[in-house]
Simulated assay, not measured.
Amino acid sequence: MADASRNAYACGSVAVLGTGFALPGAPVDNHALFERVRPLAPGLTERSVIATARRLAIETRHVSRAFRARAEAPLAGARNPELAAQAVRLALDEAGIEPGELGYLIGHTATPAQPLPPNIALVADELDYTGPHVELRQACTGFANALLIAFGMLTRPEARPVAIVGSETGSLFLDPACAALDRDQRVNLMQMGDGAAAIVLAPLRLGTPRVRAAWFGAIGLHRPPGLEMRAGGSDHPALAASPLAFAHDYRRIAQTGTALFDAGAAAAARQGVTLDAVDWIVPHQTSGRIGVQLAAHFDVPPGKVFVNADRVGNTGSAAIWLALAQMRARGLVSGSRVLALGAEATKHMHGGFLYEHG
């Protein structure tokens, strides 16, 4: 068991002024996705693709590309910073404020439009936002460290609001031709979805929804990563010209998955939040089966676990904010308590928070 005392924890609570999300285009079902990539992937069979999707229990996802070529630019309006900016605008609209009223803009993504300048600087361009901004590159747990930063900025009652946005366009980092022979890339094709989601936070005020009990931790010391992208890094100059692609070790991911959720539950308990005292649990959306798997592991009712991966796939950095935004959009009962248990396979990190709906 991970040492929960080694985690970073946020103190107090912050108000949630708004949430928003952006998904590129219409949802693409498994058959339609196969038909798109088939001309680019000789030897890829619909049977293998559908079998992979069924194991993942993912029926549809949204993608930022047309799949007309093995490597291609995103569709109009579907660039990572464009999706991120759209999600922030919707969150700001709900909050009733303009971009210029923000005190800080925080982004997190594993699939930026380009290495430099940072993706969040391009989001600021889209928003005409002239204030300070920062970007994290921690994939599925970027939300947790973003929250820790925001909590620190919102301790003063007069502090200006902070917007956080998670965004991914992972479909652009896939060579469909590899899916026929490489099982990992076939899983990437069927599992991942593109999109962005945002939240606007402010100092706590009466009568508003709030986030509290946030944390971040890691159990990956000296452990090989379960997910990585090596090409183009300064440690791998010989690979600098290679096509960028995510490499998964699904056996290693499966071995550490439950340990990460246990570490998250322990972190929540350390802050006085137990699984039986919340109305909803939102895990990282690795697959459409994550709800059944987590419910069995923690012995909680499956209906208590919110899952949207069956409809949008694994949206990486956007996943936790997207789940929360969709839950809020469809309507939560006043007083509902939502516990987020995020997990990240790269170096086995975890993070989470408690959301209380006012």
Rank of each mutant, 00 (worst) to 15 (best):
270 R>S: 12
331 G>K: 04
39 P>R: 03
16 V>H: 07
125 D>Q: 12
108 H>G: 14
294 L>K: 08
189 L>P: 10
275 L>P: 01
125 D>C: 06
351 G>S: 00
140 C>Y: 06
255 Q>Y: 08
292 V>P: 00
322 L>W: 05
71 A>M: 05
162 V>P: 06
131 G>S: 02
143 F>K: 12
318 A>C: 14
49 V>F: 10
36 R>D: 06
330 R>Y: 00
60 T>F: 04
124 A>C: 13
15 A>Y: 06
132 P>I: 09
84 A>Y: 03
233 G>Q: 12
160 R>Y: 02
283 P>T: 08
73 A>P: 00
307 V>F: 07
32 A>W: 01
330 R>F: 04
134 V>P: 00
142 G>A: 10
250 Y>N: 09
316 G>L: 12
302 P>Q: 08
138 Q>E: 14
296 A>Q: 15
149 I>H: 03
132 P>Y: 05
13 S>F: 00
52 T>S: 15
49 V>R: 04
121 A>F: 07
89 R>K: 09
328 R>K: 11
163 A>K: 09
123 V>S: 09
211 V>Q: 05
64 S>C: 14
293 Q>P: 02
56 L>T: 04
315 T>D: 03
344 E>C: 11
300 V>C: 12
263 A>I: 04
288 G>S: 07
322 L>R: 08
231 A>K: 01
281 I>D: 07
97 I>P: 01
138 Q>Y: 05
134 V>R: 01
248 H>K: 01
54 R>S: 05
295 A>Q: 06
348 H>G: 00
198 A>W: 05
287 S>T: 14
110 A>W: 00
172 L>H: 02
213 A>H: 15
269 A>W: 00
275 L>I: 14
196 A>E: 08
